[in-house]
């Protein structure tokens, strides 16, 4: 496969990935609808099939941002900066979605919109950390400076996340203990597990689709700027011309 010489000129969404994603989303929705209601939570448990995958996609996004940030600092490839930024944007979206869905799920289950649980607090903090990351990017007009500073913050922020999570975990916990990622048999009905895994797959594909599309938009913009630069641009000093001396008298 040869690389696209004009990264911005390809189809924005592509064909295969949207088709596969759509199929996965339909399958995940069908599985979520067909899975049995929970003994305690009843129909409300179906929120789990979107809440948990959204949280998974959020964490995946931040991991991708971290990897791309480290990659940019080593290789200085603009594509890695675009990937870091795109994944952070998508991550903020999925984090917001996970928090909103969790809140909707928590209201009838726990009786409150918001609970001071470790995982919830860490996720909310992550949301703000990456809002800060995006704000930092917006504040820097120079592309190289932006890539460098945001890559550094991408690494610093993510390195602090385990400490944040650990401290909040110590501080308080009332979230249910892990039910799926247990070394022995998961404490979840197998039909529900399949629906959940399909949800995770669908959200992972959605993440890939969103990130790829966002990267392509950014690449197209960069290509436009590069085109602009290859055309002869006047140097900064060319903007200054001789004053019209005597015309004001």
């Amino acid at each position: 496969m040869t690389p696209d010489p004009h990264p911005g000129s390809g189809p924005l969404f592509g064909r295969r990935l949207p088709a596969v994603t759509a199929a996965a989303v339909v399958a995940a929705l069908a599985a979520a609808m067909m899975s049995p209601p929970d003994y305690v939570q009843g129909e409300l448990v179906r929120l789990m099939y979107v809440h948990v995958p959204a949280a998974w996609a959020a964490y995946l996004s931040y991991a991708v941002t971290l990897a791309a940030s480290v990659g940019w600092l080593r290789r200085r490839r603009p594509g890695l900066d675009r990937l870091a930024a795109a994944s952070a944007e998508v991550g903020v979206f999925f984090t917001g979605l996970a928090i909103a869905l969790g809140s909707i799920w928590g209201r009838p289950t726990w009786g409150v919109w918001w609970a001071w649980d470790a995982r919830l607090v860490t996720t909310a903090l992550l949301f703000f950390v990456y809002l800060g990351y995006l704000a930092l990017r917006r504040a820097i007009p120079d592309p190289v400076l932006r890539a460098r500073r945001s890559a550094v913050f991408g690494v610093v922020a993510f390195a602090q996340v385990p400490l944040v999570h650990f401290s909040v975990l110590w501080w308080r916990t009332l979230h249910q203990p892990p039910t799926v990622l247990r070394p022995s048999d998961p404490a979840i009905d197998h039909t529900m597990l399949i629906a959940l895994l399909l949800g995770v797959l669908a959200f992972t594909l959605l993440h890939a689709l969103f990130v790829r599309t966002r990267c392509r938009i950014a690449a197209a913009r960069d290509a436009l700027d590069a085109d602009d630069e290859t055309r002869y641009r006047p140097v900064a000093g060319a903007a200054v011309s001789a004053p019209e001396v005597g015309s004001h008298v």
Partner: peptide, 27 residues
């Protein structure tokens, strides 16, 4: 250092710092 020279440094800096300084508060 991250916000040096940027227009919104005094509002951006706290947003960058406060969420990751939470363990200090809890500790």
């Amino acid at each position: 250092a991250l916000a040096a020279g940027l227009d919104g440094r005094t509002s951006l800096g706290p947003l960058l710092t406060a969420p990751i300084a939470v363990p200090l508060l809890l500790g």
